[in-house]
Nucleic acid binder design. Structure first.
Lengths: 347, 347
DNA sequence: CGACCGAAGTTACACGTGTAAGTCGTCGAG
DNA sequence: CTCGACGACTTACACGTGTAACTTCGGTCG
C-alpha cells in the first residue's frame, strides 16, 4: 500500500535488514532504535530516519526470531483443554478478554490453546513448543511434576495452575470454591432450612469445582445441630432433572444449592412441573444457584445465587508479569477472589 | 525425571544437538529422523537410537526456530477481538474445541488471540508477529485490504474471515445469517402472522450478525402481500425489555423474531410480566429465538428457535490446511453451514 | 580392475533477531 | 601536540532448526 516498488513487485519479506538498507544504517542500529535502547547510542536524526523507514515498509518484527534469540518468547499461554469446555461461559469470556488486554499492555501476547492431550506430559510438550514465557493452566487434568519440569526446562519462567493443589514448582491461582458452598449454606441455614440438597453435575470433568462447593456447604452445616446435607447428581438435561424431581418426596429436602445457575434452573423448572412450590417463604423449597448468569434474573421466582467477585484480570496479568521477571520466586498460592451471596426470590 | 544427570543439575536446554550427542550421530540425522524424512537415508538401528535419546531427554522442538527456518510457522491464529466477546457462548466453545483438535491432528497449533486493537492494521501487525500459517478472523471490525496485504507479506499463507464481505485477498467463511431470518420469517408467515417484529441487539458490535437476519425476514415477507416487518432495538437488560414491552400495544405486532434465545427470553418474560400471552395459538404473540440454547427448552412456553447446523470443525480445519498448502488458490467464499427451524411451543 | 551406484550419514548454510565488543572520528584537557 | 573519553555507529556472533549438497564406503557390473 505504501510500498513504492509497486503493489505486486515485492514478495521479499520485510526484515529489519530491509529497514536498515532503506534508512542507510546497519541492522544493529535498527534494532536498538526500535527496541528503545537507543539512548546515548544513536543520534536523533538517525532514529527518526529508522522509524520512518520501518513505518513505510510496514515492518513487523519476527516473534520467532526474537524468542529464538532471547531463549524464551513473549507469549503467555492460557491452556484450557477442549475437554473442559463446559467451563466456558460469559464469565470466562469476560475474564479472557480482560486478561489478554492487560497482557497486551504489558508487552505480552496472551493466547488460548485448547487442544486436548493424551496426558499431562503430552500437553506440556505441546505447550513447550511455543516456548511461552508463562503457562497458565486453567482447567482440565492437573499438571503433574514431570509436566512442570519439562516446561521449566524448556524455558518457561512461570507455571500457574488453577485449582486447590498445584504440582511442585507451579504457582497456584486459588479461587476457593468451598467459599461458594459456605455462603450458600449459611444463607439457607440462617433462613431456618435444615435438610439441604447439593446438586453436583454428572459430568466428571466438573468434579474439581463441584466437590469443594459441596464441602463448603458441609462446613456451614457443621455448626448447626440437626442440619443435614445430601449430595444429588444431575446431568445437564431435562430428563435427568425430571427424574430427580420425581424422587423429591422421598428425599424430604427443604432446600437446594445447585452447582450452577443452569443446573438450578433445570431443577427449579422440573420441581415446578412436578407441582412443588419454590421460593423463600417457609413451606416452599429454597433454591440457590451459582455464578449469577443473566437467566437467574429472568426465572420466576428470581434465582438467589452465589457470585464470584474475581480479582481484576489486570491484577492477574501483573502477577504473571512479576513471576516472569523473577522466575526464582518460590511457588505460592495466590488468592483470586471471593464469593458473596446475591439474595433474590428463590431462597 | 528421566534425566540421568540428576534433577537440578541440568539448566542446559534440550536441543536437537543434545539429542544428537546422546545418540552419537549428527544433528542433521536427528532432524531427518524426527521429521519422518529418514526413509532411505538413515538405518533402522540408528533411527531407534535417535528416538530413544529424544524420549529420554524429553526433547521438544523449538517452534520459533522451526518457523524461523521455514519462513512461516505451524500456528493457526484464531483472531476474535475482545470487543466481540458477547459472541462467545456454548456454540462457540464447542466449535473452538473441535477446531483446535482437528488442527492438532493436522500438525498445526490452533491458538485463540483476543486482544483488542486500535485499528485493523494494528491488529494485523500484532498477529503478524507470530508469523502464523493462517489467520482466521472470527468477528470484530472487518479486516481491510491493507491489513490482509501486511499479513500476506509477512508470510501468512491464508487469511480467512467470517461475515458476508471479505476484503480483497482474503477467503470468506460464510454462514449466511440471512438464512436464519428467512427460516424464522417463513415459519411465522406460514402460521398466518403478518406483522412481524425483529429484535436487534443494541450492542453495535453485533450488527454484522443482526442486520442480515433482519434482511432475511424481509426477504421472506416480500412474497406475502400485506406482510410487514418492524425492527426493534433491545439492550441485553431487563429494563430495556420492560420498556419495549410497554410500547407493545402501540406497535400492534403479532409475532417477533429475536436476535438470540437470550434476547427472546428477555422479551418473552417482559411481555408475560406485562400481561400479554405468548404462544403459537392465534391471538397470542408468536416468538422465535435463535441458536437453540439450553434455556430455550426451559422457558414456558418452550421457545421455538432457529438453529445453525454448522459444518463440522474438522471440515473447516481441512479447508484451512488446503489453503495453506496452496496459497495461490484464488480467494473464494466457502459456505459454513445452514439454518433450520426447531418448532416448539412459542410460535 | 576401474567405474558406477546406492545406502548411510555428515557438513555447511540460511532463517531474523538482540547485543557485546569493536571501530572511527572528534573534542577537550593537560 | 598527545592522549583519553565519548558519541555514533558497525561488526560479528549466537540462538535452534531444516535441508541441499557433499563424503564415505561397500558392493555390482561391464
Amino acid at each position: 500500500m505504501t510500498d513504492p516498488a509497486g503493489p505486486e513487485a515485492t514478495p521479499t519479506p520485510v526484515t529489519s535488514a530491509a529497514v536498515a538498507r532503506r534508512a542507510g544504517v546497519s541492522r544493529a542500529t535498527v534494532s536498538y532504535v526500535l527496541n528503545g535502547q537507543a539512548a546515548g547510542r544513536v543520534g536523533a536524526r538517525t532514529q527518526a530516519r529508522v522509524r520512518a523507514a520501518a513505518e513505510e515498509l510496514g515492518y513487523v518484527p519476527h516473534a520467532a526470531a526474537r524468542s529464538l534469540r532471547a531463549g524464551r518468547g513473549r507469549i503467555v499461554l492460557l491452556a484450557a483443554p477442549a475437554d473442559a469446555v463446559p467451563a466456558f461461559g460469559p464469565l470466562f469470556a469476560d475474564f479472557l478478554a480482560g486478561f489478554q488486554t492487560a497482557l497486551h499492555h504489558l508487552g505480552y501476547t496472551g493466547v488460548l490453546h485448547g487442544a486436548p492431550a493424551a496426558s499431562p506430559l503430552a500437553a506440556a510438550r505441546d505447550w513447550a513448543e511455543l516456548r511461552p514465557a508463562a503457562v497458565l493452566a486453567l482447567h482440565g487434568p492437573p499438571l503433574d511434576a514431570a509436566a512442570v519440569e519439562l516446561l521449566k526446562r524448556s524455558g518457561t519462567a512461570a507455571v500457574l495452575t488453577t485449582g486447590p493443589q498445584a504440582p511442585p514448582g507451579a504457582h497456584a491461582l486459588l479461587l476457593d470454591q468451598r467459599e461458594a458452598g459456605l455462603r450458600a449454606g449459611a444463607h439457607l441455614l440462617a433462613a431456618g432450612r435444615r435438610r439441604i440438597g447439593v446438586v453436583l453435575p454428572a459430568d466428571p470433568r466438573l468434579a474439581a469445582f463441584a466437590e469443594p462447593r459441596l464441602a463448603g456447604v458441609r462446613d456451614a452445616a457443621a455448626a448447626h445441630p440437626g442440619a443435614e446435607v445430601r449430595p444429588l447428581v444431575l446431568a445437564r438435561t431435562e430428563e435427568s432433572a425430571t427424574r430427580l424431581a420425581a424422587r423429591w418426596p422421598a428425599l424430604g429436602l427443604d432446600a437446594v444449592f445447585a452447582y450452577n445457575d443452569e443446573y438450578a434452573m433445570l431443577l427449579l423448572r422440573a420441581l415446578q412441573d412436578a407441582g412443588r412450590a419454590v421460593g423463600a417463604a417457609p413451606g416452599r423449597i429454597a433454591v440457590v444457584g451459582a455464578d449469577d448468569l443473566l437467566l437467574a434474573r429472568l426465572l420466576r421466582p428470581r434465582l438467589t445465587t452465589v457470585r464470584a467477585e474475581t480479582a481484576a484480570p489486570d491484577r492477574i496479568a501483573h502477577l504473571v508479569d512479576a513471576l516472569i521477571r523473577d522466575p526464582s520466586a518460590p511457588p505460592a498460592a495466590h488468592r483470586l477472589g471471593t464469593f458473596h451471596l446475591v439474595p433474590r426470590e428463590s431462597a
